[in-house]
Nucleic acid binder design. Structure first.
Length: 507
RNA sequence: GGGCGCGUAGCUCAAUGGCAGAGCAGUGGCCUUUUAAGCCAUUGGUUGCAGGUUCGAGUCCUGCCGCGCUCACCA
């Protein structure tokens, strides 16, 4: 496919040819650097603070982000993984030819290696006095940013890439010009690290289970379907890890967790991406009360490690992750919010009638669980700004959770909400294989055959349970959403490096 | 999938239905401590795509593509 180069790109392509014609390789194989930008500045400041005269000699490497030629001298800024540092080129040191080489053949966005020693300019900025430099990699396409300025050490970018479509489709360009975007993903990595530290320290074993599954399950969602050619077998991309992780409890692995990707074939929105990262753990001999306590402790730990404090601002709201969280029993919460007591309405028909009486239009033909789900997300979820557990869910939307003793219609399940978003979901896991089989059958019956979210029967899972599964508590949490909260981003796309966008025909 | 909005130069944005513009970037100059350096000159457009209305369309209409917000669905 022939690529049409822009006029700006053509000029840079000509520079590449010109460099090669002069025996200068624009993409040399090896680079060298002794210090990052920050290390070089700190090294100089340390020597300066001691009042020493020794020269701090360094070799730096980075991307050219600003150039200010002034006749026989030139100032430039390069950016590397640590930040920015100014370069100072002077014809006296380099010769006029070499300075001209820099001014003519280097463009914004090019990677450069420069050596010299650090000094402080009249304006007070710690700067590399360049003795020699070379091209490390020529950029053909100009970076989508006009110009930057540095005010009191803060980089202010002007006319910087902001079109969300370009930012997400060309995330590399977004990352290259928007350092705060890099920070989001550093923080995301810190969150994952903290979660692993927390669980590892408590004896949880990190495992990996199949993404390609012959039978999907563990959540109510439409799967993606793929096909194995040689086996002539349709496979599903997993919608949760649950059924495989609980098989491991049968295998006497008492505490397991997995962090990985789930795939759900549903609509995309500011809080939904077709593939998203999930943490699930299963904990033998624990129940949902213990899981609740561990959840509080775990998120406080993450906040400590990632933010250094337990409070943060999300979309203008001050949120505290200090345990204990607020706890609201689902039945009571819905009663307070809507005046409807779900316990009085054991059937979908009765509940739909009560909703109509309360002026809420129920979705026609929806199962009781779906109606309750709708009530939660409309009347409760948006109000749950501070960390809150909603607990004790109806059995019919929780086919893998264990009933409350003495109340077969209610299960020991909770969901955690922060910032008006559902963050996690957990329950005392059902470990009775006969009850589980009955639940699978119920799901098949109560849900329309057309409803792709009904649970398929997983015979192997039932076989595993029949070997005996210890009582246990299980937990699932969306990592993307947690990252949204801790980076104050309204859109899930901001916290996924390459979010799904509709494919676009390229010319 | 429905509703609303948006799409103009590499980037950020202007342009009552009447000559498609600005800043930065780029190009050619001047300039030895600048920092959105400055000064002089200058290049750059299939106005998302395809039709239509009109003497004349970036602007109005229809369809399509993409993005955003929102509703539905979901986590």
């Amino acid at each position: 496919m022939a690529r049409e180069y822009s006029p700006l790109e053509k000029i840079r392509l000509e520079k590449i040819e010109s460099l090669r014609a002069r025996g200068i390789e624009p993409y040399p194989t090896r680079a060298r650097r002794t210090h990052t930008s920050r290390e070089a500045i700190q090294a100089f400041e340390a020597v300066e603070a001691r009042g020493e005269e020794t020269k701090v000699e360094v070799t730096l490497a980075g991307r050219l982000r600003a150039v200010r030629p002034m006749g026989k001298i030139t100032f430039a800024h390069i950016e590397d993984g640590d930040g920015r540092v100014q370069l100072f080129f002077r014809a006296n040191d380099l010769g006029e030819e070499k300075l001209k080489f820099f001014n003519r053949d280097f463009d914004l966005g090019d990677f450069i290696q420069a050596e010299g020693y650090m000094f402080r300019t009249r304006a007070g900025e710690v700067t590399l006095w360049v003795q020699d430099f070379r091209m490390l990699a020529k950029a053909i396409t100009p970076l989508p940013a006009a110009k930057d300025e540095v005010v009191d050490g803060e980089v202010i970018s002007h006319a910087v890439l902001s079109d969300p479509e370009t930012r997400f489709r060309q995330r590399y360009a977004d990352l290259a010009v928007n350092p705060e975007v890099r920070d989001i993903f550093r923080r995301r990595a810190a969150i994952l690290r903290a979660l692993r530290e927390f669980l590892d320290a408590r004896g949880f074993l990190e495992v990996e289970t199949p993404i390609l599954q012959p039978i999907y399950g563990g959540a109510a969602a439409k799967p993606f379907i793929t096909h194995h050619n040689q086996l002539k077998q349709d496979l599903y991309l997993r919608i949760s890890f649950e059924l495989y992780l609980k098989r491991l409890l049968v295998g006497n692995l008492e505490r397991v967790y997995e962090i990985g990707r789930d795939f759900r074939n549903e609509g995309v929105s500011f809080k939904h991406n077709p593939e998203f990262t999930q943490l699930e753990f299963y904990w033998a001999y624990a129940d949902y009360e213990q899981v609740m306590a561990l959840t509080e402790e775990m998120l406080a730990y993450v906040a400590d490690r990632v933010l250094g404090k337990r409070t943060f601002t999300y979309q203008g709201q001050e949120i505290s992750l200090e345990p204990p969280w607020k706890r609201i029993e689902l039945r009571q919460g819905l009663l307070d919010a809507t005046g409807i007591d779900i316990q009085q309405h054991p059937t979908a028909e009765s509940l739909a009638e009560a909703m109509r009486a309360a002026g809420i239009e129920p979705k026609p033909g929806a199962a009781r669980g779906k109606l309750i789900d709708a009530l939660i997300s409309t009347y409760l979820e948006p109000r749950l700004i501070q960390p809150t557990f909603l607990y004790n869910y109806p059995r019919d939307i929780s086919p893998l959770a264990k009933s409350l003793p003495g109340d077969p219609q209610t299960v020991e399940r909770f969901e955690g909400f922060i910032g008006g978003m559902e963050l996690c979901n957990a329950f005392t896991e059902l470990n009775d294989p006969l009850d589980q089989e009955a639940r699978f059958l119920e799901m098949g019956r109560d849900y329309d055959v057309e409803d792709e979210e009904r649970h398929p029967m997983d015979e192997d899972y039932l076989r595993a349970m029949r070997y005996g599964m210890p009582p246990n508590g299980g937990f699932g949490m969306g990592i993307d959403r947690l990252t949204m909260l801790l980076t104050d981003k309204h859109s899930i796309r901001e916290v996924i490096l390459f979010p799904h966008l509709r494919s676009r025909e390229e010319e």
